[in-house]
Amino acid sequence: MNAAQFQNAMIVCMIVGFAVMEWATRRYKTNVHATSNDTKLELLMFLSLLAVTQPLAILATSKLGAAFFPDAKGMLADLPWWGMVGVLLLADDMTQYWWHRLSHSPLLWPLHRAHHSAEYMSIRVTFRNNFFYYLMMPGLWFGGALLYLGFGGMVYASYIIVKLFVILGAHCAWRWDEPLYRIRALHPLMWVLERTISTPATHWAHHAITNQDGVGHYKGNFGNLLFFWDILFGSAHITRQYPAKVGLIDDKLFGQERWYHQMFFPVLQSRREHSALKFGGTIYAEPEEATKAS
Rank of each mutant, 00 (worst) to 15 (best):
N2H: 12
N2C: 11
A4H: 11
F6P: 15
N8W: 00
A9D: 10
C13Q: 12
M14Y: 02
I15N: 06
V16N: 06
G17P: 07
G17K: 04
A19M: 06
A19R: 03
A24N: 12
A24W: 02
Y28I: 02
Y28H: 14
T30W: 01
V32F: 01
A34E: 06
T39S: 10
K40N: 04
L41S: 12
E42P: 10
L44S: 15
S48G: 08
L50K: 15
A51L: 13
T53F: 04
T61Q: 04
A66H: 13
F68E: 04
F69K: 12
D71R: 10
M75V: 14
P80D: 00
W81T: 06
G83F: 00
G86F: 00
G86K: 03
V87L: 05
L89R: 04
Y97I: 02
Y97D: 02
W98D: 09
W99C: 09
L102M: 13
S103V: 01
S103E: 02
W109N: 11
L111Q: 05
H112Q: 07
R113D: 01
R113L: 08
A114G: 14
H116M: 08
S117Y: 02
V125E: 06
F131N: 05
F132W: 10
L135F: 09
G139V: 01
L140A: 12
L140W: 00
W141I: 07
G143W: 00
A145W: 00
L146D: 04
L149D: 03
F151H: 05
A157H: 04
S158Y: 00
I161Y: 03
L164D: 13
G169R: 01
A170T: 07
H171C: 12
C172N: 13
A173Y: 00
A173F: 00
E178F: 03
E178L: 13
L180T: 05
L180M: 09
R182G: 13
R182S: 14
I183T: 13
I183P: 11
I183C: 11
H187A: 15
M190D: 07
L193W: 01
I197S: 09
A205P: 13
A205K: 03
H207S: 10
A208E: 03
I209H: 01
T210N: 09
D213F: 02
G214C: 08
V215P: 06
Y218A: 09
G223T: 01
F228P: 14
D230R: 09
D230W: 00
G234P: 07
A236Q: 04
H237D: 11
H237C: 12
T239A: 08
T239C: 07
Q241G: 08
P243Y: 01
A244S: 15
L248F: 05
L248H: 08
D251Q: 13
F254M: 11
G255M: 03
M263R: 07
M263I: 07
V267C: 10
Q269I: 03
S270D: 05
E273Q: 13
E273T: 15
S275P: 12
F279R: 15
F279E: 15
T282H: 08
Y284N: 13
Y284W: 13
Y284E: 12
P287G: 14
K292S: 15
A293S: 15
